[in-house]
């Protein structure tokens, strides 16, 4: 599948159906994105599992750190890969040994690895690359609009009132909104440049 852009229905379906999410590279430092994305998703009801071999014995927001994906000991729906591209292939090797396989492998903003994606997709795993689940959740719920961000969605429907201080539920009805074609073109060019030099 084309990983240069994703339609909203694809991302929304993933965020609406996954429950258990293992985050590889979760950080205990509260200024790191891999801390506050973990926290944001936990606050929105996802069953979050922090994976970081250097932190075993400690907890992240009352969830004990686990050394590796293989040591979770229960099925997971999604792996959120918070590591740079050079570590992705070895993580994919581990993902493909899991039984049952996760439904989704998600690589964070700035991380793209087309060869890894092809292997995951061949095993029936959905792939998202170079996106942040916090930003996508905030965008599709339109919560991110509070920060003046173009959510690229429009809606004439009153959204369900959510819980826990969120603005709107993810289950809001919307159509596509204002495009960000120039930024998308730059992102594609950067990916192409990275692949050409790799």
């Amino acid at each position: 599948m084309n990983h240069d852009s994703y339609n909203d229905a694809y991302i929304r379906e993933i965020l609406n159906t996954v429950k258990t999410v293992a985050m590889v590279g979760a950080s205990p430092q509260n200024v790191r994105p891999s801390y506050f994305v973990f926290k944001y998703l936990a606050e929105r009801g996802y069953d979050m599992i922090p994976i970081n071999p250097g932190q075993v014995g400690k907890s992240l927001l009352n969830k004990p750190f686990v050394a590796s994906l293989q040591e979770i000991g229960r099925p997971i729906d999604m792996v959120d890969i918070f590591r740079s591209a050079e570590h992705v292939m070895s993580i994919v090797d581990i993902i493909l040994t899991l039984n049952p396989l996760p439904k989704v492998a998600w690589m964070q903003l700035g991380v793209r690895h087309d060869e890894a994606a092809a292997r995951l997709e061949a095993a029936g795993i959905k792939v998202v690359m170079n996106r942040c689940p916090k930003i996508e959740y905030g965008r599709l719920s339109s919560e991110i609009q509070w920060m003046g961000v173009n959510s690229r969605t429009l809606s004439s429907k009153r959204a369900p009132i959510p819980t826990q201080g969120m603005r709107l539920s993810l289950n809001r009805s919307s159509v596509g909104g204002g495009s960000t074609a120039a930024a998308d073109r730059v992102a594609q060019q950067n990916n192409k440049d990275k692949n050409d030099t790799a």
Binding site: N2, S5, N7, D8, A9, S142, Q145, N150, S151, R152, L154, S155, S156, K157, R158, A159, P160, I161, R167, L168, R172, V175, G176, G177, G178, S179
Partner: peptide
């Protein structure tokens, strides 16, 4: 595959605004 991109007039009326929850 991609969502339909609304025209300028539609965005001028709707973008950013939705019924108050």
């Amino acid at each position: 595959m991609n969502d339909r991109i609304p025209g300028f007039g539609t965005l001028a009326v709707h973008a950013g605004a939705q019924p108050d929850p």
